[in-house]
């Protein structure tokens, strides 16, 4: 087997259960703010995902934030979407990111500008996430997306993709995951999981398709900070599947934050038990303080 290109890859290949944490770069030019956020999660994650203008709203570039992460001696998972760049810009940035030391790359299609803070923007989507994966794989094999040879040093990433096991049509999600694996994804981070039964069904289907031998699956957790937030996600965030039992528990909790952490830990423990789950991806959505307790309980 080839040598792993990143710590995340090495840990997964060694069979370690990994923790990745999502960090949204600040909506300003402050390096200090990135550093602060990083120092809050550093000891509790094996790698940190830097989002690429999530919900199609402007924040500091995910590549810039990935470089700050590297400077801080920490491992970034650079998230890249197809929303804002055509195939020329995508390739240019990928080559540059590798030259600067980024090794984990997560390929996504990206939220549509219409749901973001600049709805008038031109949506690019020259490629989709599957095509982006094959573009990166091509560069690694020494060819540009146009088929022409890439001469000299090639990039080499630990390549990832995302999947939402709860988006419809459910049975096709597994095939789409397979498609992403075929296109070059080596690890998969999922949407936040609340419906454990449904997720387990998804896992078994993925296993039957032989996908879990091809990719490392890192299951997503979103610690609910409040009843209001959980309800909002259930009602308003497309593709979220939140069973009523969690909503009820949050509604009747004396201390909602404490209950939110409890729920996240319970979900995390259940996911850790499932065959095929190789790590947890924690999306804090600004609630960095919750991380230490959750990870300590799950490690």
């Amino acid at each position: 087997m080839e040598r792993p290109v990143s710590k995340l890859q090495r840990l997964l290949e060694e069979g370690k259960f990994v923790f990745t944490v999502e960090l949204q770069p600040p909506k300003n030019a402050s390096k200090e703010e990135v550093r602060k956020k990083l120092s809050a999660i550093k000891d509790f994650a094996d790698a940190v995902n830097l989002t690429d203008c999530s919900t199609a709203s402007v924040s500091m570039s995910s590549l810039a934030a990935s470089l700050i992460t590297l400077e801080e001696g920490f491992e970034p998972v650079w998230q890249m979407t197809c929303r804002d760049r055509n195939r020329i810009a995508l390739q240019a940035e990928i080559l540059g990111a590798y030259a600067l030391g980024v090794r984990n790359l997560l390929c996504m299609t990206g939220d549509h500008p219409l749901v973001g803070d600049h709805p008038q923007a031109k949506p690019v989507y020259d490629l989709d996430s599957v095509q982006l994966l094959s573009l990166v794989k091509g560069l690694e094999e020494g060819k540009f997306f146009n088929g022409k040879p890439l001469k000299g040093e090639r990039p080499c990433f630990f390549l990832g993709a995302v999947e939402n096991p709860f988006a419809t049509p459910l049975h096709f999600r597994v095939l789409r995951l397979k498609k992403k694996a075929l296109a070059g994804a080596r690890f998969i981070q999922t949407q936040g999981i609340f419906n454990l039964k449904k997720f387990e069904r998804f896992l078994r289907l993925a296993e039957e398709e032989g996908i879990l031998e091809k990719v490392f699956l890192i299951a997503g957790i979103i610690p609910p900070r409040s009843f209001k937030m959980l309800k909002y996600m259930k009602e308003r965030v497309p593709g979220m599947d939140i069973p009523d039992e969690w909503i009820k528990r949050m509604a009747s909790a004396r201390d909602q934050r404490e209950e939110g952490i409890k729920i996240a830990v319970e979900i995390g423990k259940a996911l850790k038990e499932m065959k095929g789950v190789r790590g947890l991806h924690i999306m804090l959505i600004g609630w960095e303080e919750a991380l230490p307790e959750i990870v300590k309980a799950l490690r």
């Binding site: 929303r83 299609t109 990206g110 939220d111 549509h112 219409l114 749901v115 949506p123 989507y125 989709d128 996430s129 599957v130 095509q131 995302v162 999947e163 939402n164 988006a167 419809t168 049509p169 096709f172 789409r176 498609k179 949407q191 497309p238 593709g239």
Partner: peptide, 28 residues
């Protein structure tokens, strides 16, 4: 809305489009 060729994206829900929930998801 994203012109996806390898769809559907992760936002389609019960046959509806994530970007325009009053429209069907064409990939579904």
């Amino acid at each position: 809305p994203k012109g996806l060729l390898n769809g559907p994206c992760g936002g389609s829900s019960e046959g509806r489009c994530e970007v325009n929930p009053n429209k069907p998801c064409v990939w579904e």
